[in-house]
Design a protein around this nucleic acid. Sequence first.
DNA 1: CTGTTGACAGGCGAGTACGG
DNA 2: CCGTACTCGCCTGTCAACAG
Length: 269
Amino acid sequence: MPERCPECGSKVVREEGEAVSRCIGSNCPAQLKETIRHYASRNAMDIEGLGDAVVSQLVDRGLVKGIADIYSLDIDSLTGLERYGEKSARNLLEQIARSRERGLDRFLYGLGIRHIGRAAAESLASRFDDIDELTGATKEELTEIDGIGNIVADSVIDYFSEQSNIEMIEQLKKAGISMVSSRPRSSALSGRTFVFTGSLDEYARTEAGELVKSLGGKIGSNVTKKTDFVVAGKAPGSKLEEARKLGVKVIDEAEFKRLIAEKKPDVVT
DNA sequence: CTGTTGACAGGCGAGTACGG
DNA sequence: CCGTACTCGCCTGTCAACAG
């Protein structure tokens, strides 16, 4: 492991008890690229077309110096990029515009706060109505939330006590990003945990997950005794075996659709 | 106009780390 | 210590830019 960041030359620090070493430079271009890539990633703001190569060019050319700059990009600056024509530029701008309405949970995940993954971000978004309520939250309020302990709470408090982060959030507000919580519209599946294995015909994994969550259900990443349903699509993996071993109910895509349709008749036709 | 190339979305499972 | 959430690496198909 190098002692200095190969990208910006800042010191590389490894926290006691942690496996990874991190560059602590505040103006490291590699960090900026990664921050933006994460913000745009599928589970965060889902900006299709903003991947490694494009982000790299935008940062290298100085077109983007922070997350908020994404929202001031225009056709001209984009078509100047390598291998980027007008069609690509228009598609990307359309995606960027759509990302304004993703909601508080995805936005929080997109910020890249340490220890806040998709699930923790959802927990925070369902406890607080908007970003202002969250930035003002105390450690006690945070640790009351299921799944949030001391380490995660400290990480959140640290993030929002950093003035530059608050300024960035203000800029994003001005750019019209929605930072309001969207709570589940129903509680028909409340307390039920679903795990998916294999691929589904009709839905993308995340889409199916959104459906379950909109009905108040939860998505698990592994099969455990607490899993209620394993939905087995085409080419199911080892989770199916695990489900049989633990005696968890296994359903196929058709049964899954019926189950959702029962609870939410307007969704499945 | 067509074939090639590059980039990205979508998908999966194993490994790692946190919360309780 | 167990259950859960998240990270990471890998693979495949699709789409758009580019070259001829």
